[in-house]
């Protein structure tokens, strides 16, 4: 077997990161095998979003190793852009391109980065928008859509690059409660189709239902790494028990 087929999709080893004097990631170890869905939980400020953003180098790290599909993250430049094209990312605040229609948002990267002909890119875009259930919004601008629709469009935009892995950075945290489910449904569908996913979220239901593994972070450290059943029924650490106690009581 070749190294690429045995290596995990994401490997994070001994990663440290500081924001000034603040130690936000402390010797973080994490592996995400191909096809697995890993949910990262933890209180605010525990470093889970930062961890997610380091994997495509939106945040550079101070020490340690991050590999995507067996390849270490290159420094800023063309190489890094190529790697990022294979790593889909979905943001808390959607970040759809405000001056482009939904269809244009989905088409932009395939046309500019993959050099896909525009007609083909549009066809793929429409299929993806169909898949996330907003094909009828294709010609509208992002500001004309609801939050849930915008986030589904953002997922379609990421999928248009046919990524090897998808990173979700609190994808439902900026949504009104009634719109959370429509986004989670799309994500659950992706997980079922075998997409490798790293999901930072506060949605315990999604973690229970769709995750293969749950990572619990606190104060920049990975405190627990277990299956959802194990984590929710019998958390090992006091910090996890405390966290679950706070969120599951209401």
């Amino acid at each position: 077997m070749t190294a690429a087929s045995t290596s995990p999709m994401i490997r994070v080893a001994g990663v440290d990161k500081f924001f000034g004097p603040l130690h936000v990631l402390k010797n973080v170890q994490l592996e995400v095998p191909k096809g697995q869905v890993v949910v990262v939980l933890g209180p605010s400020g525990s470093g889970k979003s930062t961890l997610c953003r380091t994997i495509n180098r939106l945040e550079p790290i101070d020490s340690g190793v991050i590999e995507v599909d067996g390849q270490p993250l290159p420094a800023e430049g063309k190489e890094l852009a190529r790697l990022r094209a294979d790593v889909g990312m979905v943001f808390q605040s959607f970040n759809l391109f405000a001056h482009k229609t939904i269809a244009e948002n989905v088409m932009l990267a395939p046309v500019k980065v993959r050099k896909t002909p525009a007609t083909e890119a549009r066809k793929t875009a429409m299929e993806l928008l169909e898949r996330v259930g907003i094909a009828n919004q294709a010609e509208k601008f992002p500001a004309q859509l609801s939050g849930g629709q915008q986030q589904r469009a953002a997922i379609a935009r990421a999928l248009a690059m046919k990524p090897k892995v998808m990173l979700f950075d609190e994808p439902t945290s900026a949504l009104d409660p009634e719109m959370v489910q429509e986004v989670l449904d799309v994500m659950t569908g992706l997980a079922k189709d075998g997409m490798t996913m790293l999901v930072v979220t506060h949605e315990m239901g999604f973690a229970r239902k769709a995750a293969d593994r749950v990572i619990f972070m606190s104060d920049g450290e990975v405190v627990e790494d277990s299956t959802p059943e194990e984590f929710f029924s019998a958390p090992k650490s006091n910090r996890a028990k405390d966290f679950l106690g706070k969120i599951l009581t209401h």
């Binding site: 495509n56 063309k78 852009a81 990022r84 970040n95 980065v113 990421a158």
Partner: peptide, 19 residues
């Protein structure tokens, strides 16, 4: 966020600025 989304999609710096 607009620049971050562009970078995350694999656009180069000049593509991000221009598009």
């Amino acid at each position: 966020g607009q620049a971050e989304a562009s970078r995350a999609l694999g656009l180069t710096f000049t593509q991000m600025l221009g598009n």
